[in-house]
Design a protein around this nucleic acid. Structure first.
Length: 274
DNA sequence: CGGGCGGCCTGGAGGC
DNA sequence: TGCCTCCAGGCCGCCC
């Protein structure tokens, strides 16, 4: 489900309400996520400690707690984190819950169980196997046309796969890779070996613009994404081509096409994207 | 090593 | 109504 904008919207919506809260208890109802949830490790690193910061790296939500530990949450395809009252009944697929002081509960619901929850030392977290090898943050200062171009050196992959695999730039999944390529006027099948300097620059600019707008609009709610308070996003109405096969291109009016690239749907305008 | 594909899961949508 | 198939926002491991 969630790509960078959704995780960022979640982070912002939770930030003010969980900073300073103490984690009093951790309830693991189902440990069978992408990797087995290590209940004891969560308790040892997090229990009794206050949350001091909320950060995001790629599509991971990071909750730093006192004494140098971090709770790492990845939402996979169907994960959803919300802050509710502690007396709220457990909902279906609520696999992990963090009881906070002040009568609150931070809950993780994840029907497909592709999500991930673990705790680790804050220091050196960037060297953890989940983070090592990730590319630059698209909204940070490092993203540029030349950064993308140099990451593409020696590669031949289609530019859409290149955007989605996270080695050059992180945070783009199927929706935002698709929308960024539309905005930059680049065909999703174009090989990264055949990109001009100008195209790389336009692509970097398009990525930033698309992600920023999506965050401002509260993320994309196709099925059930919500922020930490349960609020839906509305970027889905701003999608130009994603999920719009046959609809007129908002720029030139030609029908949007759907193709499949390495098992994933891609959408593009045959007139605007070459 | 790069690139493509299947697998991991469940639920919702659509066809019959 | 029910049953079946297909599809889904991510990621990893395996294969060539």
């Amino acid at each position: 489900m969630p790509e960078l904008p959704e995780v960022e919207v979640l982070r912002r919506s939770l930030q003010r309400r969980v900073i300073g809260r103490r984690i009093e208890h951790i309830a693991v109802h189902d440990e069978r996520l992408r990797e087995p949830v290590r209940t004891h490790q969560l308790a040892a690193r997090l229990s009794g400690r206050r949350i001091v910061a909320l950060r995001r790296r790629a599509k991971y939500l990071l909750l730093d707690v006192e004494r140098g530990n971090t709770l790492v949450i990845h939402l996979g395809m169907s994960g959803r984190v919300t802050l509710v009252g502690s007396d709220e009944p457990r909902e279906a697929h609520e696999h992990v819950a963090f009881l906070l002081d002040g009568g609150k509960r931070l809950r993780l619901r994840d029907p497909r169980r592709f999500g991930l929850v673990f705790a680790a030392s804050t220091e050196g977290l960037e060297n953890d196997r989940h983070f090592a090898g990730l590319g630059v943050e698209p909204l940070g200062p490092e993203l540029s046309g030349s950064a993308l171009a140099s990451a593409a050196r020696g590669r031949k992959a289609p530019v859409k796969s290149f955007l989605m695999d996270g080695r050059a730039v992180v945070g783009l999944g199927n929706i935002y890779a698709t929308e960024s390529l539309f905005r930059a006027g680049i065909h999703p099948r174009r090989s990264v070996a055949r990109m001009s300097r100008q195209s790389w620059t336009e692509l970097a600019r398009a990525i930033r613009a698309v992600l920023k707008q999506a965050i401002e609009e509260g993320g994309t709610t196709l099925n059930d994404f919500t922020d930490g308070a349960g609020k839906s996003g509305y970027f889905q109405v701003s999608l130009a081509v994603y999920g719009r096969e046959g609809d007129p291109c908002p720029r030139c009016g030609r029908p949007v096409r759907r193709i499949v690239q390495s098992g994933r749907a891609s959408f593009y305008c045959p007139g605007c994207q070459r």
